[in-house]
Write a protein that binds this DNA or RNA. Structure first.
Lengths: 189, 189, 189, 189
DNA sequence: GATGAATGAGTGTTCATTCAT
DNA sequence: TATGAATGAACACTCATTCAT
């Protein structure tokens, strides 16, 4: 359906050019539809953008939820979190970029869907990591380390990796293993 | 001089709203000058942006160069790299954000000053880190680890930290120490 | 259609005020449309101007082509050329003015549609006149005269007449007859 | 003096690009002065333009006045009028172009110096030619012809020649002779 | 005479959006 | 669903002009 052509094209363009750098005409042309059709399916450019963000976060959260499965060690849980992001980057590079790195301009508005979803995501991951680290330390699996700071740091780490990969600033293979091993050495006793 | 008001205002606005999300009228108003004055001092919006980017990178590179001083251990050199970035974030948050995270849209043009400077920066840091890690491993200071992948990873790490701090996604104190200790545990034997 | 209102208005304004002296806003207002509509139908002010020039020349060339009909004498052919121009001036004064007298500024660019069409027009008429004069001299209809110089001179004559009439510098009746008789006395044996 | 550099440059630019197509900045740059200097010497762009027009017409009228010398025949007087224009074209091509072909846009204002001077020029030449032709016919030197129409026609002729020569649409030598002979054959008995 | 800095009023152009069909 | 035609508001940028020095 043409609606999905619009979404697909818009996602790609928003991710590569930013929200303000993308025009509705460009979306229409590249999706091979006319501009008014965008307004038939969406209330406007903002609505289209928010729809994409919401969609992206939904897929993303679905995957996040699936992390809460049994694993033998805490580090395996952290490793899975990295794996999830590396996989998502490969499969839906534009979406993850928008989801994690979305329009700085939008983040000025605390009530914007971007800000709220990003906040939710950060809180979710933070809580996930905090639990892992705390339990890891308690069980003696992990070395001693400041919990909150390590959590924040790992969040920055993840977002930096996503940015780099989606901007194709590097394409080194073996990155995932390097990242995981780096963390393992640092964390696991 | 009013020229510097323009630069200062533009730097702030470009960093918080992006290039496309910032209008010349807005820059003029917030800098308390008239729009044509921007065009008196710069050739256009692009020129103003590039001027800021070039300025930012110049200050940044000057600091980077100063890293090549004697230090007793390789890890100290890496620690200094982190310190430099944390300091720069504090002093000139907008500039470092623009310098490290600049306009994704601009990076599509390989010849753009953004792309070229960013490339130079990444190469400089990569080379700096590679040398540290190689020598650290050779001297037995560091554990064994894949050099290139670790370098790329650390680059992502730095960019992630900058993004997070300038977007004020967190403001935890003790971050720097946590980051350095995290890396130390992972790397130093 | 409003597109034709734009063309009509623009033709009139370009002819009376010149290209640079006419603003798109003025065209829009006098055509009773909004400015962006000009940009919906044309790529820009230049495109609109070129469209008019091309249209004008097309109508003009169509008439020129129709000159190649049988006539008993060579002078009749020359007379017809004058008649054609006097008629065109009456019917489409703005267009002929733009076509023959178009924007001196545009003529600096050899590749501009104005320059090329004007060149084509001059060559067409020159060739037409050269043939007439040569044959007229050969057949004894015409007095002896330098062919090329006379051709150039007649071209200047035509362009001068057009300029004068469209600028309404005079409105004397009987001009056409006077011109034709002037030439006849000079040329015909 | 720099004032004359301004005048010279402005004359050239107005003649080749038109009044509206020429900016004060361009004049300043090409005359190697700064913009405010133009405003020191002239009241504004319009004043500069009018100054040039007035200057041009003054030089032109001075020459026209000198035509009233004794000549044996009426046709010689007409020949001298052509010679004067051909000479002026060679010596001061920009000025004569501005003087004879000046800004159509300006001619909409009947009180503008352009309109008034042009009118004066046309009336002067018309009166000069009318007298010549009348006397020529009366004395039997000229063939019979309608006086007013021939006068208007010759005016158009002159303006067409000037336009052609200054736009360099042709560069044929022998033009002057051809023109004069063309007229002689037509007029002289 | 001469200039660097500055501006009010506009210029061509683009944008997201709407309307009639 | 889908579109050709149209628009209000804004955009980057330029212009002739002025002012302080």
């Amino acid at each position: 359906m043409k609606k999905y052509d619009i979404i697909e094209t818009a996602t790609r363009l928003f991710a590569t050019q930013g929200f303000d750098g993308t025009t509705t005409l460009q979306i229409a042309r590249e999706a091979k539809v006319t501009e008014p059709l965008i307004y038939y399916h969406f209330e406007g450019k903002d609505d289209l953008f928010n729809h994409i963000i919401r969609n992206g976060f939904e897929a993303y959260f679905t995957r996040l939820e699936s992390l809460n499965q049994k694993t033998t060690t805490q580090f395996e849980k952290i490793e899975k979190l990295f794996t999830l992001h590396f996989d998502f980057i490969k499969e839906r590079p534009d979406e993850i970029y928008l989801v994690v790195s979305a329009c700085p301009a939008k983040l000025k508005d605390a009530k914007h869907v971007c800000t709220q979803k990003l906040d939710k995501q950060r809180k979710w991951i933070a809580s996930y990591l905090r639990k892992c680290i705390k339990e890891g330390i308690a069980s003696g699996e992990f070395k001693k380390m400041p919990v909150s700071e390590t959590v924040t740091m790992l969040l920055a780490f993840i977002s930096g990796i996503i940015r780099q990969r989606t901007l194709k600033l590097e394409s080194r293979r073996g990155m995932k293993k390097a990242v995981v091993e780096f963390c393992r050495r640092s964390m696991v006793r």
